[in-house]
Every structure is written in C-alpha cells, then in structure tokens.
Simulated scan of single mutants.
Amino acid sequence: MSRAQPTTDAAAAAREEILQAAAELFTDLGYAMTSIDAIAERLGATKGRVYYYFKSKADIFFDIQRAAMGRLMAEVEPIARSDLGPADKLRGMAAAHLGMLLADLPIQKVSVQGLERYLFHSSGYRYVNELREINQLRDTYEQIFAEVIDQGAREGLFNDMPPAF
C-alpha cells in the first residue's frame, strides 16, 4: 500500500498527476519497461517527487487499479441503486461504464491489463494481498451488474437469461 500522505488538495493533485503519467507509460511501454525514472521524466520532475507519494512502481500500479475501480463504481453504482427499471438501469450502467472508459482512458486501460501477468508471475507471492484486494473490488463491481441483470431476468425482461437464484 502507498505511504500515507497529508490529504490536501495539492497532495491529491500531485498523486493524480503521477498516476496519470504512470498509466500512460504502462499503456505505452508495459509495466516491466516503465521505471520510476521514466515516470518522473514524463512529469518533468525528479524521481524523488514520485517516491514522496509512492514507495514503489507496484504501489503506483495498484493505486491505478484502485482509482479505476473507484471511478467506475462512483459512476455506475448510483444508477444501479436508482428507482429505474432493470432495463433502464442496465442501459445507463453500460453507458456510464463506457463513458468512464473513454474519459479516463489511460487509467482504465491499465486497470484491464492483467494484474497477475505483471506482478504475480514476476514477483511470486509478494503482492498476494494487493491482488486479492483488487480482485475483490472487481468482483464487487461485477456483482452490481449481476444484481441488475438478475432483477431483470426475474421480472421477465431479459428472456434469454435465467435468474441467478
């Protein structure tokens, strides 16, 4: 997990800037070929600035995953919990998901890249807790869609999908 920093607007903006730069590089070069030096260079800063907010490249990668899932949840969950019918919810959720993917492309693109491929296989069990956390976030996000689809199936709106009892 990343180092705890003061929760000021400036610190949040600096962390976001680092996450964006890293996401762009992870997308362009891949995780293995992206270094803290490359992230700092992309920012026009020293690597000390990056290390002030993150203790490692892996911490940056995991925070990108958390940010991506948090942003998707913030957009999709209110629609899923609304009073709309299941079909309208599902349409709205899909549109919100797609909109977030397009608006937040580098962060979201990195989030769909294989966590295990980048970290687990190259580092053994070092990041197993972080991988579990990210997978739980993804499962929770998926469950929101599953609940709406299940509701629609029970109401007979999605005839080709049986309820998930």
Rank of each mutant, 00 (worst) to 15 (best):
A11H: 13
A11C: 11
E16I: 03
Q20I: 10
A21Q: 08
A23M: 04
E24T: 10
E24R: 10
L25R: 04
F26P: 00
D28F: 12
A32I: 14
M33R: 14
M33C: 15
S35T: 14
I36P: 00
D37L: 10
A38K: 07
A38S: 11
A40K: 03
K47W: 09
V50W: 00
Y53F: 10
K55R: 15
D59V: 01
I60E: 02
F62N: 00
F62E: 01
D63L: 10
Q65V: 05
Q65Y: 07
R66P: 02
A67P: 02
A67N: 06
A68L: 03
M69C: 12
R71E: 10
E75S: 13
V76D: 01
V76T: 11
P78K: 15
P78T: 13
R81G: 09
G85R: 01
G85L: 03
A87E: 03
K89A: 03
K89M: 07
G92H: 05
M93T: 02
A95I: 11
H97D: 07
G99E: 10
G99W: 12
L102E: 13
L102S: 13
L102R: 14
L102G: 12
D104E: 14
I107K: 03
Q108A: 15
V110K: 02
S111M: 09
L115E: 02
L115I: 12
E116K: 15
E116G: 14
E116H: 15
H121M: 14
S123Y: 15
